[in-house]
Design a binder for these strands. Sequence first.
DNA 1: AATTATTAGGTAAACGTTTACTTAAAAGTA
DNA 2: TACTTTTAAGTAAACGTTTACCTAATAATT
Lengths: 334, 334
Amino acid sequence: MKPTIKDVSSIADVSIATVSKVVNGKDENISSATRERIKRIIEEVGYVPNRIASSLVTKKTKTIGLIIPDIANPFFPELARGVEDFSNKEGYTIILCNSDNDLEKEDAYIDMLQEKMVDGIIFTASSNRSELSIALNKSSIPVITIERNIDGLQSQNTIVSNNENGAYYAVIHMIECGYEKILHISGPMVSKPAQERYKGYLRALKEKNIEPIENHLIEGKYSGDWGFETIQNLISQRFDYDGVFCGNDLIALGALKALQLNNINVPNQVGLVGYDDIYMAQMVRPELTTVKQPNYEMGYQAAEMLVLMINNEEPNLSSESLETRLIVRGTTRV
Amino acid sequence: MKPTIKDVSSIADVSIATVSKVVNGKDENISSATRERIKRIIEEVGYVPNRIASSLVTKKTKTIGLIIPDIANPFFPELARGVEDFSNKEGYTIILCNSDNDLEKEDAYIDMLQEKMVDGIIFTASSNRSELSIALNKSSIPVITIERNIDGLQSQNTIVSNNENGAYYAVIHMIECGYEKILHISGPMVSKPAQERYKGYLRALKEKNIEPIENHLIEGKYSGDWGFETIQNLISQRFDYDGVFCGNDLIALGALKALQLNNINVPNQVGLVGYDDIYMAQMVRPELTTVKQPNYEMGYQAAEMLVLMINNEEPNLSSESLETRLIVRGTTRV
DNA sequence: AATTATTAGGTAAACGTTTACTTAAAAGTA
DNA sequence: TACTTTTAAGTAAACGTTTACCTAATAATT
């Protein structure tokens, strides 16, 4: 049987309160003799405090729930890492939840996290969900949404990156490179980032007085296969375009592969820009021009903000939109 | 204030025991009238059971700790996903820990997980650590090691993939393709998988009666940059080789980039094989020949095994070595 | 010497559940 | 009718801590 604080106290012949005090460093009023004796005994018997029991009285679990769509999606590991790094630094532990953008799973995880009394939740919601917002609002548990905000959540604390600007500058760059017939292969338009990127794309065209070509928006999934297929289709349809702005790097890498397979020169015949700056963007030839999102920072700052909320220190940022950075590499001509 | 079981019980005018029974479905002896009344009240007041409190008495937290080096390393997300999928199916929640292969962090996490009373731990240990094994052994908490086993851990339950065979078949394939001067760019040799892959590489050469070339082992990191640098160096040294077996895909992709940059044709002048089959392996041209590790399955099976251990049902597999699969693509000539 | 302050530690309630055991009433049986 | 069984629920201890408050002994102050 695992030793408890009681075992330690009886061996040391002190009360459990005394042991508790030295374990938690609240031992100003404990003589150094007993302090050392207790510490030695703790070592000897291998006592490890039961945080479940202490959580019950302190009402703090030092645990944060992280709900993301899928850790296997290359966008999220870095974000998760950011969350974990800050959390760990502050003594928090994180519970990882993959929702697969499935509303039922999201709900189930929210419930579970509440039952486990997490101190706060960081949440990439699949879409806007008023019922969820309501449920979350009345639960009084600090929540911060990340990457996408959801409407109707009170004390809306959000970390997002500025998708619209990111897309805008990317497309401006393409236009300045001389591409004129630029289409947009996007991810699913139900997601906010997809909507915002599309908005930025349109804004750039408008500002440069370029009429969007017909069928300029091709909506699909955030996968390499989707990018590949789309280009293959376009080629078989003899679609006329000279630039492709992709919803993310995965799409772009798939597109690049298809273009090269059909001997279409990138960047000379067709310019290509991705979004995210995943590691692989630099591992292909030509290297991919893309928009870097501060994934790690987003996670880190989200955790930072959440911990502030947990400690009831009003975060001075109630909603932060981090800027993106255009990284010009080889898939756009200069 | 959040409602507790007591609030529900007093509104329903029953004892807390009765509420507890209906909450946990142990309500054979509760009349359907009261059962429904209680359920309605739970709904109305928004009662959510405090699992911290119940864990204290049941001594089960329904939580599993997962310690891996780095979730941002493309090898681990899938594995983590496998762990999470099975765990979630069984009602477990996972705590994610990134150790960065840092011994102190590993220790700190092990402590933390024990304090949080997790029901079990899945662990990718950075290296062999006898003290850790001892600590773990006496803690009586179920542990399963994954991807790499650590010596001295009692009731050694391990899920690994057969690295030696994976490497062996890969190199055999290269030799059968006609490559003869094959070098091995490996990850850090302190890690077991690196050692085993090297062993497989040597075994293949030996079996085919090929003398390893001089300086055939180049040891470094599991990164694309490392692969890139190494090839650049080799080229500047005019090193003579015609095949490269890489410790992982990241190294291979870096190497591929360097080779192509120097106009060395892959697979005609130099054959190239990676390890892992990350998603990006098919996104480059030529697509990378590689060894597929069953990452997801490893995670899934590890969780499966751990849950068996937690439930004290002796797992019939005490140490499973999953087979790998060689995936021949475009970086080796046929 | 009498009073006060400080030091070192103890007491016991509280946190929110679960569960083995008990009980009272109702129903069944001889 | 008198007993036994079943049904429906309640009682209270236990889980392992923390912490506000208390106390006795010693030290400091006047």
